[in-house]
Write a protein that binds this DNA or RNA. Sequence first.
DNA 1: CCGCATCCGCTATGATACTG
DNA 2: CAGTATCATAGCGGATGCGG
Lengths: 117, 117
Amino acid sequence: MKENECPLYSSKIMLSIGDALEAVNGKWRIKIIAALLDEPKRFKQISNLIDGITDRMLSIELKKLEINLLVQRTSKYSSQAEYELTDHGRSLKPLIMELMNWGKLHREKVIGKQEVL
Amino acid sequence: MKENECPLYSSKIMLSIGDALEAVNGKWRIKIIAALLDEPKRFKQISNLIDGITDRMLSIELKKLEINLLVQRTSKYSSQAEYELTDHGRSLKPLIMELMNWGKLHREKVIGKQEVL
DNA sequence: CCGCATCCGCTATGATACTG
DNA sequence: CAGTATCATAGCGGATGCGG
């Protein structure tokens, strides 16, 4: 039975979706990963790329990403730490691409036409 | 300039990601869409497919999905309403597939190996 | 300047009971 | 069956300020 053809609402599927959401959900984590997709960056660089994020949230979310083995912190010296994606983190790239494309589409279709959400 | 080659952290990209996340974020909305991917369903059917969701949350999230034009409610009679995805909602299918596959991978790689998050 | 901790309000989510 | 109303609460996220 091919995975992609089996009932979309099976509980195994829901479980997988739940797992993925847990690792990645919230306002910031996807954006942090997107910011790191091309190359390792330092705290402040990431912070500058993500509009609206506070140091506090960036710090917290980076930690969660480390726990989930998506981001690896390479502390050279103190105050010189760099953050980079693990291979596993990089495996999110297709997902992020999809999200990006869909977001563009969604903006065109829905946002702006109704001024809400 | 090809979209997939341009800097991943450009603010336009971040904006798209933000738009997508807004439409879809939270614990439940992706799962609700997944539950509706194959065919229209009624309130209770959806609720039964999504482990842990309460009537209250399902009601609230369905409303948000309607506002974002992802789900359409076809009220036949009262107490016989059906929910189905709009075309726009269906356009999330590749994203959900990606999420699902990645979630499976993530569970194998990370969850269970460390019992956390 | 870099990252993190404390304090705190607010929003998202939950439990439960109720209505048509 | 298909929701809504009320109440409670954990965690998110912002402001600010501390310690390298």
